[in-house]
């Protein structure tokens, strides 16, 4: 999970306390995914349980510092050196919506696509404006923030392209007489184990 690894990576620069970690995470990611302090402390508890951080000094203001262990540093190196694997199991709300919509009777799927396209393009316009307002980064924080904005821009662009592609695919399918709605299956699946068929019994 990236929050856990991100906090660990920040701690690899030196001991921090909870609020400080939150501020460091926010300023390095353009406050795009703000964390609450509860999440920070929960994560720190788990990191301590796993032997990746340990409690350090308490300063004059009563701040409880946490420092990284050798095992924690090794995990940071491991995180930076390995790819992020995006699992197929992550549900994509929009893909599910289109897939279901195309099987339903009476749904104007072209309109569903257009409504989404307009929303996606509006997001892309706002991101582009935001990016253009900054032009060239003047600090490391701005550079990090621009990387996040770029990532959102490319994700929105990919979504717009996928919508275009879906529209073409749908038009071709319609021309070929496909894209008919799926009626409910009258052979309702039974609960429990599927019954043994004769073929299965012979095998």
């Amino acid at each position: 999970m990236s929050v856990r690894q991100s906090l660990l990576a920040i701690l690899n620069q030196g001991p921090c306390y909870g609020y400080q970690l939150r501020a460091e995470f926010d300023r390095r990611t353009g406050s795009t995914w703000p964390l609450n302090v509860g999440q920070i402390y929960n994560t720190l508890d788990r990191l301590e349980r796993d032997g990746l951080v340990r409690k350090a000094d308490i300063d004059a203001d009563g701040q409880n510092y946490v420092e990284i262990t050798d095992a924690g540093s090794a995990e940071v190196a491991d995180w930076l050196g390995s790819p992020v694997v995006r699992t197929m199991a992550t549900r994509d709300e929009l893909a599910i919506k289109l897939a279901i919509a195309v099987t339903l009777p009476g749904v104007d799927i072209a309109q569903v696509i257009q409504v989404q396209r307009t929303a996606t393009m509006r997001t892309l316009q706002e991101l582009t404006r935001t990016k253009n307002a900054t032009a060239d980064p003047e600090s490391s924080e701005q550079l990090a923030w621009l990387l996040v904005i770029d990532s959102l821009i490319f994700a929105a662009e990919a979504e717009a392209r996928w919508l275009d592609h879906s529209e073409h695919r749908l038009a071709r399918a319609r021309a070929a007489g496909l894209a008919e709605p799926l009626p409910l299956n009258t052979e309702v699946p039974k609960r429990g184990r599927p019954a043994k068929t004769a073929a299965a019994a012979r095998a």
Binding site: R27, G30, S31, T32, R122, E126, L127, R129, T130, A133, T134, S139, E141, Q142, A144, W145, I149
Partner: peptide, 11 residues
């Protein structure tokens, strides 16, 4: 939109 909320994130 004229003002984008995203700009608030600019460090």
């Amino acid at each position: 939109s004229a003002v984008t909320s995203l700009l608030s994130g600019l460090p």
